[in-house]
Design a protein around this nucleic acid. Structure first.
Length: 636
RNA sequence: GCCCAUAUAGCUCAGGCGGUAGAGUGCCACCUUGGUAAGGUGGAGGUCGGCGGUUCAAGUCCGCUUAUGGGCUCCA
């Protein structure tokens, strides 16, 4: 007799000696049995035919669960690998996990896969799905597993097995004539994978290391229903329309030319946007008691040796010679800020000193890493360095976290926080790193902020808190960051006079809120799909006249709004009103003012609002008051 | 930097087997003076990313190169 406890706490008892999750599902309902993909027995993920031999808790996994999706996609990747091996004999398979929204498999093949191959592979996958092969699990000893994959010529699998921990159960899954090393669980059979699509081919290093061979990775996604797949593909298409590179061109924000790879040109409207962001930023930072400085773009190599950049960051720096001396274009603003600090003597009474800089930095990013405004080789950091006493660390960090939070909330962003710890290539004493890492974590904990730990991903001079924002496709980008630094104060021999009249070493944190203004513009462009809130819109109002008779009044209005500080454009072209509206609409202009006889007569404007359409006539003075209020409040 | 793909008018794209380029849109001119997402006619615009090669002849085939896209690696 077996007693099964379900997630809702209800219990079911069975006479049999052995029950499988599949049988239990069927006992609950036929529908559930059909939907169930795998199960969790006593919190362990298992196949549906897993033999339950004693009382246990059981939860049934469907595609609606994250685990279910992962199992489904993982099985999909097996089917893809099977299809590839059938079509391209001799192909070696590496790894094929489920990822967010899909799966991939890495292959080592003489044959170079083309987009046309994807269709062939899909066809073969369809055949495998139709055959409805069962996935069967088999547990092997280490030696058996190695022998098996050696005999199949699967060198990568052999390498994986050899690296598995001693006490690990080694299992393989078979479906049809295909066998793969796999912990499982899997779908009961290939027939479940009703809807899938192969999306792209990419290179990927074996084990993610650029020292290893580059394999061919095929990405795909799969769903239980065709309609879900179609909806997903549709969503991808929609996301592409929000891509900041596309919108940046359509809205004339910026452009990147062959003459400047990674060095964006900001067009008039993009420059306006950038300046508006900085205006907002300065307002916040002045309120928070920051002072602002500006340090040189080019500084002597000696400074970079002092800062450690010459040793730790050289490959990312652009260097040049001036007369006989070596110089470097700054990749970071911190050394400049250190020099400003050293320009005068400081007392503990001065602290904290919050020193900000809108600094343009240049970094040699790998050509393949460039991506619109998101990853460039020249960008503007909204940098700040805070000099303080050890006992001020936590409060300062908390204040900075709250400041960044305030700024992100202004844009309606949700974000993720990561704490990155000491990387391999780094400088400084272990105990400094420990103190630094724990102060960051404690500050976040005291604020009740959730965060993930990113082991070994810190900067070479200290650990950091990173704020991650998402783009239109859900890819995350680091924007804000708070980095503790015990190194630079030492290297630059920063001091202050303490209450004991002795010299002491200050603590420094580096922090940015936008991170890179360029990247931030990319993020907000995608976030708002180009429809910026009024306070940020490069053009807030467009005046559209109906005909010649209305030009003079339109011009008067234009002048009036301009003088009121409203960003307004006038369209007195010889075109029909529908045409002018369409164009302003495509430019995502927040407000259009239609001007005809009616409006002139009543000193009003024919108001048309983005997203809402025609709102009828409004007195010009009322509209002006309304939009001025909206701008002043930075309404979303 | 690595793998794959792509590169034709300001923009979006056509150009089976090689025979010195086409559409829509935008731009300019004229007609039209029109009330909430594209009025009509005409015109100007192209070293087909760059360099080299094959050929009587290259946008088209080959090699190299630059940039872009998707990834890997790396990072704001």
């Amino acid at each position: 007799m077996i007693q099964i406890t379900l997630p809702d706490g209800s219990k079911r008892t069975y006479e049999q000696e052995i029950m499988t999750p599949y049988e239990v599902a069927g006992d609950i309902s036929r529908g559930l049995q059909k939907k169930t993909l795998a199960a969790k027995v006593n919190d362990q993920l298992v196949d549906l035919d897993y033999p339950i031999q004693e009382d246990a808790s059981l939860s049934l996994i469907t595609f609606d669960d994250e685990d279910g999706k992962e199992i489904f996609r993982h099985s999909s990747s097996h089917i893809m690998a099977q299809a590839v091996k059938n079509l391209f004999p001799g192909t070696k398979i590496a790894i094929g996990p489920a990822v967010k929204d899909g799966f991939y498999y890495d292959f080592d093949s003489e044959h170079v896969f083309t987009p046309e191959d994807l269709e062939k592979i899909e066809k073969e996958m369809n055949r495998i799905v139709k055959e409805d092969y069962g996935f069967t699990r088999e547990e092997l000893s280490r030696q058996e597993a190695i022998d098996l994959f050696k005999s199949l010529g699967e060198d990568y699998k052999v390498e994986l097995i050899e690296d598995l921990p001693e006490d690990c159960t080694i299992s393989v899954y078979r479906d049809g004539d295909f066998v793969d090393l796999c912990a499982g669980p899997h779908l009961p059979s290939t027939g479940h994978v009703k809807a899938f699509k192969l999306l792209s081919i990419a290179g990927a290093y074996w084990r993610g290391s650029s020292d290893n061979k580059m394999l061919q990775r095929i990405y795909g996604t799969s769903f239980t229903k065709k309609a879900e797949l179609d909806a997903y593909l549709e969503m991808l298409e929609e996301a592409k329309k929000r891509d900041h590179r596309k919108l940046g061109q359509e809205l004339e924000l910026f452009t990147i030319m062959e003459e400047g790879p990674g060095f964006p040109f900001f067009l008039p409207k993009g420059t306006k946007l950038k300046n508006l962001l900085l205006e907002y930023w300065r307002e916040i930072h002045e309120r928070e008691d920051y002072i602002e400085i500006e340090t040189p773009i080019i500084l002597n190599k000696k400074l970079w040796e002092t800062s450690g950049h010459w040793d730790h960051y050289r490959e990312n720096m652009y260097t040049l010679k001036i007369d006989e001396d070596d110089f470097a274009i700054k990749p970071m603003n911190c050394p400049g800020a250190m020099m400003v600090y050293k320009n005068e003597l400081h007392s503990y009474r001065d602290f904290p000193i919050r020193m900000a800089e809108i600094g343009r930095v240049h970094r040699h990013e790998l050509s393949g890493a460039l991506h619109g405004l998101m990853r460039v080789r020249a960008f503007t950091q909204d940098d700040a360095h805070i000099f303080m006493l050890p006992e001020q660390i936590k409060d300062e960090i908390k204040a900075v976290v709250l400041k960044i939070d305030e700024i992100y909330q202004q844009f309606g962003f949700t974000y993720k926080i990561e704490v990155s710890t000491r990387p391999e290539e780094s400088m400084g004493a272990d105990e400094d790193w420990e103190i630094a890492e724990s102060s960051l974590k404690m500050a976040l904990e005291e604020l009740g902020k959730d965060f993930a730990i990113n082991e070994g991903d810190g900067a070479f001079y200290g650990p950091k808190i990173d704020f991650q924002l998402e783009d239109c496709l859900g890819r995350t980008w680091q924007c804000g960051t708070i980095q503790l630094d015990f190194q630079l104060p030492q290297r630059f021999e920063l001091t202050y006079a303490g209450s004991d009249n002795e010299k002491h070493r200050p603590i420094v944190i580096h922090t940015v809120a936008f991170g890179s203004i360029e990247r931030f513009i990319g993020i907000i462009t995608e976030h708002f799909a180009g429809a910026f809130p009024v306070w940020l819109a490069p053009v807030q109002v467009k005046i559209l006249s109906l005909s010649d008779k209305h030009h003079q009044y339109s011009r008067d209005l234009y002048q009036r709004f301009r003088q009121a500080g409203i960003r307004v454009e006038l369209d007195n072209r010889n075109e029909k009103i529908g045409y002018k509206i369409r164009e302003a609409q495509l430019q995502k202009t927040p407000y259009m003012l239609i001007i005809g006889d009616k409006e002139i007569e009543s000193e009003s404007v024919g108001l048309r609002k983005r997203g809402e359409g025609d709102l009828g006539a409004v007195l010009a003075k009322d509209f002006e008051a309304m939009i001025r209020k909206e701008i002043a409040e930075r309404s979303m």
